[in-house]
């Protein structure tokens, strides 16, 4: 696709702008910002990837991954709830998931250790983990807020902090991972996944595209469950002090 063809596709940006203006939706500004940002960000990423692919140097791959983790952490930290020390908890979670998934993929020779494979797959894994992290944190803090009395009750009867947050943790882990699991049940029936569609459009064999898409889907299952559980178990201890007292003020949103 040439830049000229791409510029014609801006019609798909103009249509929502016209609709927004006509129906007074007030989405014009955000639509323009979204379009401009996606053009700049994706083109920049395209050139950076081209450079990294050509360089064939592991250092650049690691730098790219760190950049992804940094950006994901920053975003999840802003959108997620305010839990003490959430930044390093997110970094540890993203790093762990990245190391876990790449160790399996590369260790078992499922994908080759080249930038062309490592970077896009890591992007999907970290991106998915970020969304899951935000979903989990928001639900978990909401559960903790609404069940403050239950937390206090269990502590008052001699329960530990882990027992006091058990229901809240399980509810939040389930609530954040169910969309991933459910969407996989209907995949292919309603919509073709983005990566698979991209490969098919680029001329790849549809069956090969499906095999890769399945790999990604399975990866995302691990990512979803691991992210929620890790963040949950890293986060809940900061809601209590050493005397096993529930710190209500630690849940106050900024």
């Amino acid at each position: 696709m040439s830049y000229l063809t791409l510029s014609i596709t801006l019609i798909f940006v103009i249509i929502p702008l016209i609709l927004s203006k006509t129906f007074k939706l007030g989405l014009e500004r955000d639509t323009i910002i979204a379009a401009v940002r996606s053009i700049i960000q994706l083109l920049a990423v395209g050139y950076v990837l081209q450079f990294v692919f050509n360089a064939e140097n592991a250092v650049y791959i690691v730098l790219m991954l760190l950049l992804m983790i940094g950006a994901a952490t920053q975003n999840a930290r802003k959108k997620g709830a305010s839990i003490k020390g959430i930044t390093w908890k997110l970094i540890v979670t993203f790093l762990f998931i990245e190391i876990l998934t790449q160790s399996i993929l590369l260790g078992l020779d499922i994908t080759p250790p080249t930038a062309q494979y490592v970077i896009p797959i890591s992007g999907m894994v970290i991106g998915n983990s970020m969304v899951l992290g935000i979903l989990f944190l928001n639900r978990f803090t909401a559960e903790m807020e609404t069940r403050q009395n239950q937390t206090e009750l269990i502590l008052s009867l001699g329960g530990t902090p882990k027992q006091a947050v058990h229901t809240q943790l399980i509810t939040s882990i389930k609530a954040s991972t169910i969309p991933t699991i459910e969407s996989q049940k209907t995949i292919g029936l309603v919509q073709l996944p983005g990566m698979m569609s991209g490969q098919i459009i680029a001329g790849a064999d549809p069956v090969q595209a499906v095999l890769f898409q399945l790999l990604i889907l399975f990866l995302l299952l691990t990512t979803a469950v691991t992210t929620s559980i890790m963040l949950g178990y890293l986060s809940y201890p900061t809601l209590f002090n050493q005397r096993m007292q529930f710190l209500r003020e630690s849940l106050i949103r900024e």
Binding site: L153, S156, G158
Partner: peptide
């Protein structure tokens, strides 16, 4: 803490 809370039982106002 857990021993204390079993030694000094409390029935909280909210009866949660």
């Amino acid at each position: 803490p857990t021993v204390l809370r079993r030694t000094v039982g409390i029935a909280l106002q909210e009866a949660t």
